[in-house]
């Protein structure tokens, strides 16, 4: 049995939730959990938390859990979820905001020098930039 989660006023208005709202500009409280985003998402089977649950966790302030989730990094930003949403919640923007929250924290962006010269020259630039924005494994 998993440990009970605490829901509290403090947590629901956590500073990271506010930051997420500021970055994304999305009103997550419009979501009524129909699940259409998850139902339509082409990458959902690879995600640890499906998109509708991401929004739900933001509503409840379980933000720490989201910062550790794989989901925002699996998200391909195809915007199918946003197009499908009956309530106008831009889920793709929330995903991007979650990535930003992680990237703006103390985060290991990777070191170009650690990549072998030979390999580095072969790598397309876009992949390198992508790596900076995401992570070097």
């Amino acid at each position: 049995m998993t440990k009970n989660k605490t829901v509290s006023a403090h947590q629901i208005s956590h500073e990271n939730v506010d930051k997420l709202k500021d970055i994304s500009g999305v009103n997550v409280y419009a979501c009524y959990q129909c699940g259409n985003c998850s139902s339509a998402c082409p990458a959902v089977e690879f995600m640890d938390i499906p998109p509708h649950q991401i929004i739900r966790k933001v509503q409840l302030g379980f933000i720490d859990e989201l910062l550790e989730s794989e989901t925002p990094w699996i998200c391909a930003a195809c915007i199918t979820c946003t197009v499908k949403c009956p309530r106008g919640v831009d889920i793709a923007k929330v995903m991007e905001a979650l990535r930003q929250l992680v990237l703006r924290s103390d985060f290991e962006h990777g070191n170009l020098c650690e990549i072998e010269d030979k390999l580095r020259k072969k790598l397309p630039q876009i992949a390198l930039i992508g790596n900076f924005r995401k992570t070097i494994l």
């Binding site: 959990q33 129909c34 699940g35 259409n36 998850s38 139902s39 959902v44 499906p50 009956p86």
Partner: peptide, 27 residues
């Protein structure tokens, strides 16, 4: 099933419904 259907399509003589059950968390 608690959730919305994202698409419905014809496959032979079947009508395939793709949706989600948010209570179990599965598509």
């Amino acid at each position: 099933l608690r959730g919305k259907v994202s698409k419905v399509y014809q496959d032979d003589d079947k009508v395939v419904v793709c949706g989600i059950d948010t209570l179990s968390g599965s598509n």
